[in-house]
């Protein structure tokens, strides 16, 4: 369970260009659900996602993960939580150029220092599950958009996190690849993962596997949608 209370996020505080991206978000996100944030550009979806995923800190407000208040934790502990709990799929994929698909997938596990052979096998297996085994040695810049996204998904799963966070996951994909992504999402939900994503793509937010769609505008939640019947 993730709980947010009175979350505010301001950028350039005290300057002329001060900007409030989030203006008092109160939210409760259940586990093992697929939740989508919907809203126009600048509505604060990505900022909210980065706060949920401990990629940034709120200017004020509290974040609870399970029974633990993580708002005031030092960076080191946040990194630990990020590594153990979350897997990220970014809109621009954020893969490291020059590294192979396999190396990119293995990267989040490096700080854990596990056995190389085991890590290698797990990364290969994830790429295999996502039908990318034949492209494992290819440099990331030589992969198509869809392939890059699947590498990003494999990377998000390498440490077996409980929560998958995806920011506009279908923004750079055509319809076919977007459908493929939704199928992967369904599989992740099926194995008990919590999925939190942002999107304004109807293909995503109207999909039956999405349990909850939360509308945002101007840094506020405007229309919380109740959990869809029969999707749990």
């Amino acid at each position: 369970m993730i709980e947010l209370k009175g979350i505010h996020k301001a950028f350039n505080t005290g300057r002329e260009n001060e900007f409030h991206a989030l203006n008092g978000i109160d939210l409760h996100l259940p586990t093992q659900r697929v939740t989508a944030f919907r809203g126009p550009s600048g509505s604060g979806k990505t900022t909210l996602l980065s706060i949920i995923g401990c990629l940034s800190r709120p200017t004020s407000g509290r974040v609870r993960l399970g029974e633990r208040d993580i708002s005031g934790l030092p960076e080191r502990f946040l990194t630990h939580i990020r590594r153990q709990t979350f897997g990220f799929i970014f809109q621009q994929f954020n893969l490291i150029k020059g590294l192979s698909a396999l190396e990119n997938v293995m990267l989040p596990a490096y700080p854990l220092g596990g056995n190389w052979r085991a890590l290698h096998e797990r990364a290969e297996s994830l790429l295999g599950d996502l039908r990318l085994a034949h492209r494992r040695a290819a440099a990331i810049e030589h992969l198509s958009g869809g392939e890059q996204q699947r590498v990003a998904i494999a990377r998000a799963l390498i440490n077996d996190p409980q929560i998958i966070i995806a920011d506009e996951p279908t923004a750079n994909l055509d319809t076919g690849l977007a459908m493929e992504f939704m199928a992967i999402l369904e599989n992740l939900h099926a194995v008990g993962k919590t999925v939190i994503l942002t999107s304004h793509d109807p293909l995503v937010v109207d999909a039956t596997i999405v349990h909850q769609v939360i509308d945002m505008r101007d840094g506020r939640i405007v229309t919380p949608v109740p959990i869809a019947e029969g999707c749990a």
């Binding site: 080191r76 990194t79 990020r82 590594r83 153990q84 490291i96 989040p108 700080p111």
Partner: peptide, 13 residues
């Protein structure tokens, strides 16, 4: 960007 990515995916400072 690379430093940001590494931090985001769980590398410590």
């Amino acid at each position: 960007r690379e430093i940001g990515i590494l931090k985001a995916i769980g590398w410590e400072t």
